[in-house]
Structure formats: C-alpha cells, structure tokens
C-alpha cells in the first residue's frame, strides 16, 4: 500500500523506532537512522554536523534555517528529514568554500551584508533561491501587474521577496546591495 512505513504504530505512544533514510546533501548520499520526529534542520546540524545552517526560531518565522531543496528555498525547521529521501539538498556548505566563494557569498563579504552573521547562511541560501524564482518570471506581492511576463528586480522587489529572512542586526541595506550585485552580474 505504501512505499515505506517506519516506526511501530502500536508502541508509538511510548517510543518510535528509528527510520532509515538516505539524504543527498551537497552532492553526497548520507545514510542516516533517525527518529521520525527529526526535522531536516536537526538532521543537518546534529547528525551530519553541517552547522552552517542555523536554528533561529524553529517555527518558520525567521528564515535562519533556509536551505535549497531541488533548487528551491525552504525552511528546514518546518519539514521532517524522512520526507526528503530522493531530494537534492544544498546547504551553505555546498555553495562554496573559504577559498572558492559562491558569487552570493563573495557579494555579502564585499558589501558587508551582515553583522553578527547568524542569519547569513539562511540569507544567502534564500537569496540564491529567490534569484532563481525571479529569473523564472515569478511575480511577488511588490509586483504591480502579476500578469506581466517580466518584472524588474527593484530594491522594493528584493525586500518583499526576502521578507522571510529576518536580520536582528538590521543589515538589510547591505544585504540588498549584495543581492543586487549578483542579480546585475547575472544579467550582464
């Protein structure tokens, strides 16, 4: 009836059997045995020790845990790891390294798009996902005519599209500058 059932329903009230799940993270397949309750965020941080992805609110309100799943940005705190077998997961560690930064990482450094840095991995993953959405022609709440085929990525558009990422240090002007640099580089 179903592809995979994990855990023992009869004993679910007391304890849950761990579930075997293979996650593809930053191009590597990782075999894990996880309590079904494990969020993707906790699987990344606590089981794979990829601590670049941050836990902020753990309720989908701050965006610090943003990762890319099959190229799309999501909150890793609000999804279960067991739901992501068969997906391509990319975290901040998969984007670039200190010696070879991703263009978005380089732009955040150049534009000083952070202060404490806690929200930065989420901001960068979100910005990369957001630019892909804009490139695909997706409108936003800031778009005057949602039926228009293309939308100029103005600062107002970037702000609206990045509203799921909170920066407690309020580095927003520099975050927008960094994203604008990359967006303009893409066009050129």
């Amino acid at each position: 009836m179903s592809l995979s059932t994990v855990g023992d329903t009869k004993n679910a009230e007391n304890a849950t059997e761990n579930a075997k799940v293979a996650l593809t993270v930053n191009g590597r397949v990782r075999q894990l045995e996880l309590d079904p309750r494990t969020s993707l965020l906790d699987a990344l941080r606590e089981h794979l020790h990829l601590t670049g992805t941050k836990k902020g609110c753990d309720h989908g309100q701050c965006g610090a845990c943003t990762v890319l799943i099959n190229g799309r940005r999501i909150n890793s705190c609000l999804t279960l790891a067991v739901m992501h077998a068969d997906d391509e997961i990319v975290t901040i560690e998969g984007l670039g390294s200190p010696d070879a930064l991703h263009p978005m990482q380089a732009a955040f450094v150049l534009r000083d798009g952070f202060q404490c840095g806690y929200c930065t991995p989420g901001q960068i993953c979100s910005a990369i996902g957001m630019l892909a959405e804009a490139k695909a022609g997706w409108p936003s709440h800031a778009t005057a005519d949602v039926a228009a085929q293309t939308t100029a990525l103005t600062d107002a558009e970037i702000r609206e599209r990045m509203s799921g990422n909170i920066c407690r240090c309020a580095a927003y002007p520099n975050i927008i500058a960094a994203i604008r640099d990359v967006a303009e580089g893409d066009r050129g």
């Binding site: 009836m1 179903s2 995979s4 994990v6 855990g7 849950t16 079904p36």
Partner: peptide, 23 residues
C-alpha cells in the same frame, strides 16, 4: 513533539486507506 510513525503514500487511494487508522 509526541512520537509518531511515518509512511509515504504512493497513490491517493493508498493515502485515504492509510489515514483511516485512529490518530
């Protein structure tokens, strides 16, 4: 979070059958 078991349904009919369990 309370413990639970998990399954992935393969088609809509399997899904409605699977959810008929209490809880």
């Amino acid at each position: 979070m309370r413990p639970f078991t998990y399954e992935r349904a393969i088609d809509p009919e399997a899904a409605v059958a699977a959810v008929s369990k209490a809880g």
